[in-house]
């Protein structure tokens, strides 16, 4: 279970925490619209989706390497 995946996932988790935590979150936490949608709404869900996609990619890649 210990391979290069663990530090990568740790880093991913740390970056996600940073992006969803103050003070960085305050950059998106404004009563503004991005197009027609609220800025914070767009920010939270797109960062969240990105986190999911990256996690999935990391895990999938590992599957390819180890049959």
């Amino acid at each position: 279970m210990s391979n290069s995946l663990t530090p990568r996932l740790l880093l991913l988790s740390a970056i996600a925490l940073l992006l969803f935590e103050y003070p960085l979150l305050s950059l998106a936490d404004k009563n503004a619209l991005l197009g027609e949608l609220p800025l914070l709404y767009v920010y939270s869900f797109s960062v969240w989706l990105l986190l999911i996609v990256l996690t999935a990619l990391l895990i999938r890649r590992k599957k390819d390497r180890i049959p």
Binding site: M1, L9, L12, S13, F20, L40, W48, L51, I52
Partner: peptide
């Protein structure tokens, strides 16, 4: 209180990558 409910779901989402170990 707007998007404050999201915290309850972002917590698990942020820790999910660590489930690997």
């Amino acid at each position: 209180s707007g998007l404050s409910f999201l915290a309850i779901y972002l917590g698990p989402a942020i820790i999910a990558p660590l489930w690997y170990f």
